[in-house]
Design a binder for these strands. Sequence first.
DNA 1: GCTTTAAAAAGTAAAGT
DNA 2: ACTTTACTTTGCAAAGC
Lengths: 207, 182
Amino acid sequence: RMRKWQKRVRVSNAMERNLAFALSELDRMCSQLKLPQSVREDSAVLYRQAIKENLIRGRSIEGVAASVIYASCRQRDVPRTLDEIAEVARVSRKEIGRTFRFISRELGFKLLPISPKDYIPRFCSELELSESVEKVAHEVINEAIEKGLVSGRGPTGVAASAIYISALKCGEKRTQREVAEIASVTEVTIRNRYKELAKELNIDLPL
Amino acid sequence: MDPKIKIENVVASTSFDQEIDLDKIYNDFEDAEYNQEKFPGVVYRLTEPKTAALIFSSGKLVCTGAKNVDDVEVAVDKVIKKLKGAGVDIKNKPKTVVQNIVASANLDHPLNLNQIAIGFGLENVEYEPEQFPGLVYRLEEPKVVLLLFGSGKIVCTGGRKPEDCEKGVKKVKQELEDLGLI
DNA sequence: GCTTTAAAAAGTAAAGT
DNA sequence: ACTTTACTTTGCAAAGC
């Protein structure tokens, strides 16, 4: 009888409400993170895909939303760290990471491991460094990869130290503190990576 | 030569098939920990072999920290004697079941985790250096999980027998050699 | 899912000298 | 800067929320 379509309407309303909420959350987080339009669009597409595949069951809307943003950023090679996303999301970094792994596996993402190089443009821009610094930083990272100094190290830490070194080389010095702030790593980490790179890549720089 | 495996931790469980009064155990065992709100079991640590036993009111017991499969028996026997000394009469000694073995190994060769992730297949591994320095690789046979590090060191966990870990490490090593990544 | 136990790997972090 | 402590990841059982 009428119960059936009433229930359908109820479910449909709930789904629409949830989708509307999710999309507004995606917009809010993307705005706060100042993400490009392409990432916003990708995120919405991925979220709808997640709904189609029933991947929301047992997971929070916030968590899935944050996860698809994280995935979209990586897919567009403009990664944000889980911590950066967790700052504007209402769920922990741990849950975003867990949900990302699940969504990533279920939707068949084939994302390459994050490369320190992907952080160079954004960090350099925020530090107001020239393009020549960016270019040198890329070269430093390429050398680091060849010498096996990247495996297992945090991509942001490697990027930060490469930028620190490159800025010095180009006469556009930024303090470790300034670079650390932008890259969300500690000065200790920059120092550790910097020492390692300077030693292994025979970079003669003042300490 | 097959890589040497070092067993770092053995987790085992057993059941006495009889209810145990944990409050009594907690009072009689001078160095036992018991916080009901925190965790339903009594935590009892042994110095030799260095292990930790979790005792539950159902009579079930979990033993962790052993460096050998044989040490598990030694530890469980000690806990049983301790229980008997406290007035808990354990009728017959049940069989202990090894639930998990954690082992470490070394390939003595640095690893390019990025290439390994691609070589093994992005859908078969988890490598998120932002979160953890190790690459996670799951094997079906033997059913173990391996953590590969840039240093060439490996952690193998999830095995129920030492051979599972030995075979697991041997298998990844072979796969790495086949791909020319080692 | 969480809680607690144990242990290794290597990176990162924070606190105390 | 250096040391110490601690948290990230993996696997597993236990009883109960």
